[in-house]
Amino acid sequence: MDDKWSVYDTKLTSRLFLGTARYPSLAVLQAAIKKSGTEVVTTSLRRQNPSQKGGKSFWNKLQQLDCWVLPNTAGCHTANEATTLAQMSREIFQTDWIKLEVTGDEYNLQPDPFELVVAADQLVKLGFKVFAYTTEDLVLCSRLRDVGCEVIMPWGAPIGTGKGILNQYALETLRNRLPEVSLVLDAGVGQPSHVAQAMELGFDGVLLNTAIATADDPAQMAEAMKYATLAGRTAYLAGPMAESGTANPSTPNVDLPFWQNRQQN
């Protein structure tokens, strides 16, 4: 099936984005990326210690995988922090793409809607291509679109919970109300069925990390997520049947055998 799509004019074949954290080793991460078929992986920036070269090893290996890099601003709590970190990411990762995260609550890592919009506005004006990680609030997502976000990434559930899609109605509403925006479900995915569900709703893609990284066999789970993405997307394009409140026999209801017995009763 030829189903290419694009984010900020970059053509993609895969609709699965992968986070790179929490894997048992870099080798397992590499295997998972290959099995998933992803073309986009997320990264971060952290304080470094000159005596530890872990970051260099990670970055060297990631560059060998021929994927687009999507740096994040995880850990930022204000628009100014996120803007500074995005500028630092642009220099070292050599990309205008930024996965904008501004945390408003530490308990469930819920995005701060107010700082998020300010940050998105600042970053778009600085030439960034913003992938905004957000809650599923329609008005918030509309504001993010208004300031120039072409890719909006609502959560299904809080990061790392694996609870799946908690508010399907809101995600359906987003799809219906923001048809021009690329919607990527980000966070909360635990099972391939959650991925398929998002794609069946008409989402353009899914970003996930923990569900693969903490599986017993991350590479195998990555492959499962790839197929779930394809299944959901294909089903969406095929046009699912309308739900019915009553049973309808799938076998034709004419010329039934033993009809005479029922007539006698």
Binding site: G19, T20, A21, R22, Y23, L29, T42, T43, S44, L45, R46, R47, Q48, G54, G55, K56, F58, W59, L62, P71, N72, A74, M88, I92, F93, I159, N209, T210
Partner: peptide, 10 residues
């Protein structure tokens, strides 16, 4: 000074 380096991220 904040001196940062590439790292894994979600």
């Amino acid at each position: 000074l904040d001196v940062l380096a590439p790292m894994v991220g979600g």
